[in-house]
Design a protein around this nucleic acid. Structure first.
Lengths: 202, 202
DNA sequence: TAGAAGATAGTAATTAATTGCTATCTTATT
DNA sequence: AATAAGATAGCAATTAATTACTATCTTCTA
């Protein structure tokens, strides 16, 4: 890779663009990322971006597709082959946290996208991502109840909400502290409380 | 209120402005609220706003001051006189949730402000608000450990992070569902899991 | 296989629209 | 009448998108 030719095939250029946005979102407010900033970060002129995307909105959609694909794939693989539902949930949690620590702009972009009044393609993508995420959680929770690892009286929806909220809380703390690595350090400690909250035994 | 006179004293006009922003943030992306939209929502011309605020940044600072003042006051009063630390925490939680349900734009503005790269006055205000919020939590947690209501092995910081994250998760769910009232309905269910997570007994 | 022809990708400059802010004039209140 | 508050109109800067032109790569034919 890194052929020093400035000309890249369209699909590669699109991939580089997505990566550029995700990198930028790690260090600045996602809603303030301009097409000029994106282009500059990838050593391209602003106008050239529109050779590969019809609009800025389309860029954001591509970014969210990238996120949804990668995140779901990674959490699926992390839980695979783990017999205990609780252990699988912890693996999912840690993998998600690792993903977020690698790409701190991602959760902030997602939250920002959800805020939009209009139902943009990117927002719809975030919605289906979280929906699919929730399906994974519900399956594990049900399995956990059946195996007795999770409290039989557990409220499934609330447990799923709190699972995701826990990560959101970690993101918020890292924003407060201005320290991304804090997420990795705090994640196991916070999950331990969550685990006690949903588990059947102490 | 609602004196139909168009001329308002400066302090009242500032108060109305803050309320307008908070209302708008409840139904649209806070980062996309323009001074023109604020003015329109309060039946004023855009330029007139700058008679009362030196800059847009100053408006946001005023909003955050309003939020910090009200929120801290309400959670303080809600916990006052409650002997049990756990019960006090629940009261705080429910009061906070009620505040958020009344002003759904508030948590989204706060999160959005934390994302900014620059340290704006509004961002600084959010930081101190959350810091003070954390102090309240730490006190209650310590008291809860002493009284035996909370697990002695509980990780204070993690418990505080999760407390706020829990609310953030509820906000996210309401954004997904496009239904603010959902927050009120889900809050007790989610808190119950949190309570199990930090409590000493089942 | 050489090279013309076409397709693809990039540049630089420009445009239309938006936005925060200001200067000037008008109206209302006390 | 004096002053505070608001309306109107406009400026300067920013931003997404477009356009005319150029550079580079690919493919097909002689």
């Amino acid at each position: 890779m890194d052929t020093h030719s400035k000309h890249l095939p369209a699909d590669q250029r699109r991939a580089v663009t997505v990566e550029a946005v995700i990198e930028l979102a790690g260090s600045q407010n996602p809603s303030e990322i301009t097409t000029a900033a994106i282009a500059k970060h990838m050593n391209l002129t602003q106008g050239a971006l529109f050779r590969h995307f019809p609009s800025k909105e389309a860029i954001w959609q591509a970014v969210m597709e990238w996120v949804a694909e990668r995140l779901l794939d990674r959490i699926d693989r992390s839980a695979q082959g783990i017999e205990s539902p609780l252990a699988a949930m912890k693996a999912m949690f840690m993998t998600h946290v690792e993903f977020v620590a690698e790409h701190p702009g991602v959760p902030r972009m997602m939250f920002g996208e959800l805020q939009r009044a209009e139902l943009t393609p990117a927002k719809r993508m975030v919605q289906t991502l979280i929906q699919r995420y929730g399906e994974r959680l519900h399956q594990l929770i049900e399995k956990g109840k059946a195996s007795g690892e999770l409290s039989a009286a557990l409220d499934n929806e609330a447990a799923a909400t709190l699972f995701i909220g826990t990560i959101q809380g970690l993101v918020m703390q890292s924003l407060l502290a201005g320290d991304v690595d804090r997420i990795r350090r705090d994640a196991p400690r916070v999950f331990e409380i969550y685990r006690r909250g949903i588990g059947s035994i102490q």
